[in-house]
Design a protein around this nucleic acid. Structure first.
Lengths: 231, 231, 231, 231
DNA sequence: GATGAATGAGAATTCATTCAT
DNA sequence: AATGAATGAATTCTCATTCAT
């Protein structure tokens, strides 16, 4: 009867604990291997070896190699991102929410380095294997930021002249790159300790407002807009 | 000396103009193909086809497939980044320099979309094929930012309490993600128009300073640092 | 004697009725699956699924996948062919015997389409998995024809100038192809209705004897024998 | 430029003689291997080995393993069958045409035993890989027979009470099985020598017409039609 | 006896790279 | 220099068979 494949069970959460254990073992092994070598450089054999199962066993739990990445997002990453939401909901003010988002983000990624590496690498691919899943997660993340900024605008702690679409990317990107750097220095420092200074930068910017000379938001002359003057 | 390979010549720019033309043709074809399919999904045959040369010809100009990516960074990307340096040097104040950096960055990436896509995707891989080149470019970029921030601190337009290592990433990340978003929406809007608002965000932050309630830089209680309190 | 396999019992018909029932269930399921997909395209899992048993159970009743085909011939097909013998024995004249053979053949194959399909397909393979069984059955079939023709020659209803080896194939082939055509048109017409006209053709041939111009059994000129004259 | 694949050239006959030579070498090697082991038991490696090329080379000339079989029918078998048509057209009377068809058929199959084996085996599969090609060839063959019989009916040498659809299968099947038998006895006798006796059987049938007792076309009693009486 | 998860040998296919022309 | 046919190592995936439960 068995079509020799259990992966669909997983999708619908009907697995027995025993199988679940092996499923997670393979998934974690895969993430480790992906983190070390990148998705395309990794072979199914390596994953099987790392998980301590036979090559064929992988295919009982995953449709194919790509599906491992898909499920990484669906099953592992989205768990983490749902935790962001929960954490953010625990505090009330916009600024506190932002701090907590950043803190949790860095905290979770620091505590699961392999996930962090795979997430950062694969999410930046244009042709992504797990496009659907990534889109769902990104949406969740940007929704959190949107809410948070809108709240801040209401309670007066955040500027009202902000283009939300840009702000979301601005915040997201700043956090992302801090994580990236940490990854590429092999996690040699405490990522979480960057949370507060980073939140501070996002909120206050790097300008020295109102102190010495107030920032003159001097825009580039119009003619430069269309074409950068390479004088 | 039956030279069946010219790639080392290229590296040191000793190619004849005629060959140079073919070299660039192949490199551009490769970037286009990489942008469309990702490095690993692209085949040497596809690149050759796009460049209008035979498969074997690729190996007269490049050591191997990986080398194409290496030279993309060495030859193409670094050109662009050197232009950043030039542009930034043209203005004097820190804030102007920052604006010009962002502007040029977005401008150049918007004008060479294939480069932008390949750069964003491949640069985020941990196991990078062109690690050395990327590091050089990143260094160049971060040096520009460092200088710029230090200048700003001297002339009083930028905060003096900034951890430079973090600021660099903060700025880099914010710009990066704005580009990423643009790529993933298929470049449907004018990326360059984001330059000024983005510079503004980086300088002023999102906080509403001195207006209503000044931002209380309230740090999370100490005990939360080690472990996020999931209360 | 931890017997984890009963297949040898089956071979000698010592199974208990209960097991026999499961044995037949699996065999029929296999034939159905083989008929639909061909032997090589069919998987043991599919057969198990069709039979409503676990994959491993198959191996309690059959030595391996090939053995299913072997037993198909040994157990199923040979039953049918023995029925041919019985039917033929019921009538006395050669012509009646031939008619009855054809009729029964078409009748049985029409009534067990899966058997017909598997039989026709697998019997024509040169490297046959069940070679021994097929040979036995073919022998049985040809023996029937031999007897029948010899009888016909004795009672004067059949020509005496026949090369028996050829006649057997002639008859066998004609019947076979009629069944084949029926299979490949998805059994859309009544196969049994072909019995009489087919018998007629075998007995009378297609020639218009003694009516208009008697068939001149004109043989090709000698020189054409060794090599077809492609004039 | 090359997509590393030449098979489409072959399809449209644009190959250079040199490539053509290799194409035919592979095709013949494949047919030999298929004949010896059956299509499914044969591996691409075996074919490559037999042809004296690398495994990958196969894929320059054939889309995939299945395509080898498809092209066997399209390129090799159909050539042979077109020769049947030519031969048949060379003579005028129906009976001569039939003799020549049978003769050529046996002659060609005897002279290309591997082709004969593969043709007989794969053509009888219900789920055929080269269904389209087989259908074309079968049509061609049956058209020849149709014409031939119709001609015979006109010139009075063939019976007018024939159901053409059945006659075609009757003739086809008789020839087929003679070839089959020859294959399965490892071609130990002269197949072509069967041509005349076989043609004779087809034309005259096995009945002893007009000599002793004329064949009473006695049909089985009606009640036996629906259900064979297994008394 | 029955099960079905696990195994791993084996097969098809791809593609970077070479090299004779 | 340029070509592109040929190569064969490497990889994914399948599935018959086993065996602990």
């Amino acid at each position: 009867m068995s079509i020799h494949s259990l992966w669909y069970k997983r999708r619908f959460h009907i697995g027995t604990p025993k199988n679940m254990e092996k499923y997670e073992r393979i998934l974690n092994a895969a993430i480790k291997v992906f983190a070390e070598q990148g998705f395309h450089q990794s072979t199914v054999s390596q994953i099987a070896g790392e998980a301590g199962v036979a090559d064929g066993t992988i295919y009982l739990y995953f449709k194919n190699k790509d599906d491992i990445l898909v499920q990484f997002y669906e099953f592992k990453t989205s768990q983490v991102f749902q935790r962001f939401r929960k954490e953010v909901d625990k505090v009330d003010t916009a600024v506190e929410k932002l701090r907590r988002l950043i803190y949790t983000h860095l905290y979770e990624f620091q505590n699961d380095r392999h996930m962090a590496i795979v997430f950062q690498a694969e999410t930046h691919q244009k042709k992504r294997l797990a496009g659907e899943q990534i889109r769902k997660i990104s949406k969740l993340y940007r929704d959190i930021i949107s809410e948070l900024v809108e709240l801040g605008q209401e309670d007066g702690t955040m500027r009202r002249d902000l283009y939300l679409g840009l702000v979301k990317r601005f915040i997201n990107g700043a956090i992302d790159e801090v994580i990236n750097s940490w990854i590429h220095t092999d996690g040699s420092y405490d990522l979480v300790s960057m949370a507060d200074p980073l939140a501070d930068l996002i909120i206050r910017g790097i300008g020295n407002h109102g102190v010495a000379s107030p920032v003159k938001v001097r825009h580039l002359p119009k003619e430069q807009k269309g074409n950068p003057v390479i004088t």
